[in-house]
């Protein structure tokens, strides 16, 4: 459903509040079927906010956004899909390692996407966010 909406109804993301509400539905689905993902998101939120200069806001297209000095480090949608902006060469290397994928809408950019499903994914997500944090800080 998330993939379908992002692929075919992407234009709707520009309607005020709609992405946030869609994220609300995604959260409801995650709460019912994959509750552990919400726990992983909580842990990531706690860890990132312990880094100096970081802050939290709702992402303009739904989900939680982590910033450092008002620059985005990355954001997590409520289904556990995390998007992080890295340098293209780092992205190419990570894709070769096979753990991340191209961003779900912005291919050919420094954005990467990564699904958090397990404890190990959560730890790797934190590593990716830390890369981005170092780049932006």
């Amino acid at each position: 459903m998330f993939e379908f909406t992002v692929k075919y109804l992407n234009v709707l993301k520009n309607i005020p509040f709609l992405p946030h509400i869609f994220d609300g539905f995604v959260k409801l689905h995650t709460f019912i079927f994959r509750r552990e993902i919400l726990h992983f998101i909580d842990e990531i939120e706690k860890a990132v906010l312990s880094w100096s200069g970081t802050s939290l806001k709702t992402h303009r297209y739904g989900g939680l956004e982590f910033d450092v000095n008002n620059k985005e480090i990355g954001h997590i949608h409520s289904n556990g899909l995390m998007d992080v902006l890295l340098k293209k060469e780092i992205k190419a290397q990570l894709i070769r390692e096979g753990r991340i994928q191209d961003h779900h809408t912005f291919a050919n950019s420094g954005w990467i996407s990564f699904y958090i499903k397990t404890e190990a994914d959560k730890n790797y997500a934190l590593e990716l966010l830390e890369y981005s944090y170092i780049l932006k800080n």
């Binding site: 509040f17 946030h20 509400i21 869609f22 994220d23 609300g24 539905f25 959260k27 409801l28 939290l56 806001k57 709702t58 939680l64």
Partner: peptide, 13 residues
């Protein structure tokens, strides 16, 4: 359900 959950997380942040 969708809008209340959405609003709750907007409020949380």
């Amino acid at each position: 359900f969708g809008f209340t959950i959405g609003g709750t997380f907007i409020g949380k942040v």
